[in-house]
């Protein structure tokens, strides 16, 4: 596989920006367009870009966790958010809110169990997309052997 120098340099700049942007998308998702799914896709695209630039093995090393572990963690987060509401006596997946007063800000920070759910969704999306892309790209060279 021929590596493009331009793509490699551009990737070095783009990956951190994409990852940061994905977190931004995740956090603004409760009241505005965005959320875990979009954020997850952006984050996954960062790793896909990296894998195109330096190869799947490099991307796997940078990711550290196996995509399937990410998938499992994400599912655990999302289901956990539901169980959390059950444990406090509310309905399954009912939103719970806590207000955390922050120094220097007049409005307290509102944190909800929906955020845990959304983070879970993000992990699931990253894990699923990367699992698909990695396994397809891995096989491309030896897939048609003639």
């Amino acid at each position: 596989m021929i590596r493009s120098l331009i793509l490699q340099i551009a990737t070095r700049l783009l990956v951190p920006i994409l990852l940061l942007f994905s977190i931004f998308m995740l956090l603004r998702g409760h009241n505005l367009p965005g959320g875990g799914f979009v954020g997850g896709l952006v984050a996954a695209s960062a790793f896909v870009l990296y894998s195109l630039a330096v190869g799947v093995d490099g991307a796997r090393r940078v990711l550290r966790l196996a995509p399937r572990t990410l998938l499992g963690t994400g599912l655990a987060c999302s289901v956990g958010a539901g169980i959390l509401s059950l444990a406090t006596g509310a309905s399954f997946l009912q939103s719970l809110w806590v207000k955390v007063p922050l120094p220097g800000l007049s409005d307290p920070l509102k944190l909800g169990s929906t955020l845990i759910f959304d983070i879970g969704v993000m992990f699931v999306v990253v894990g699923t997309v990367l699992l698909m892309v990695f396994s397809v790209e891995d096989r491309v060279p030896g897939l048609i052997d003639d």
């Binding site: 399937r68 499992g72 655990a76 289901v79 169980i83």
Partner: peptide
């Protein structure tokens, strides 16, 4: 769901 997630992890 929980069983599936745990066996995955």
């Amino acid at each position: 769901a929980v069983t599936g997630i745990l066996t995955l992890l």
